[in-house]
Design a protein around this nucleic acid. Structure first.
Length: 143
DNA sequence: GCCAACGTTGGC
DNA sequence: GCCAACGTTGGC
């Protein structure tokens, strides 16, 4: 059974468009220097799905990505503590789901996006996954 | 650009 | 091992 996640990115550093341009090759999700975020990445399995969220600007879930390489050393540092996964774009959210939308939805009140504001790599429950996909206009959510 | 929240570091 | 200082994240 696959699990669900959410990756935050500041679009002026690494945007959904840039991620999509990488296609199936995917891209290393490097630069994470937070233990909780790294620990979440350690749990990820090939094929797990994840929301791609634009922080700072946009403040919305813009697309769905998939883990295409499991945990490995972060190539941007020699510090062995920091590891990461690779992800590739799967599809756009037909309608981006904004942070405002998430906060306004009672079903999503426990979502880490709301409760752990600063965590940049978060777990998403299956219920949350389905609800956000529904809000985003995805009739057939990737599972 | 501000600043609150919160994670990390380092002195003791 | 506590906790103050400091740095970073991210919403507003």
């Amino acid at each position: 059974m696959s699990n669900y996640w959410l990756f935050k990115s500041e679009p002026f550093k690494w945007s959904w468009d840039q991620q999509k341009a990488k296609g199936d090759a995917g891209e290393e999700w490097d630069g994470i220097r937070n233990y909780q975020a790294r620990n979440n990445m350690r749990e990820m399995k090939l094929g797990d799905k994840a929301f791609f969220y634009h922080s700072n600007e946009g403040l919305e879930i813009v697309g769905i990505a998939e883990i295409c390489k499991e945990i490995h050393p972060d190539s941007t540092t020699d510090d062995p503590r920091w590891e990461c996964v690779d992800i590739k774009a799967v599809c756009d959210m037909p309608t981006p789901v904004t942070l405002k939308d998430v906060k306004a939805n009672e079903k999503l009140s426990d979502m880490a996006l709301v409760t752990s504001m600063r965590l940049s790599v978060q777990p998403v429950t299956k219920d949350e996954w389905l609800e956000v996909c529904r809000m985003g206009g995805l009739d057939k959510p990737p599972l």
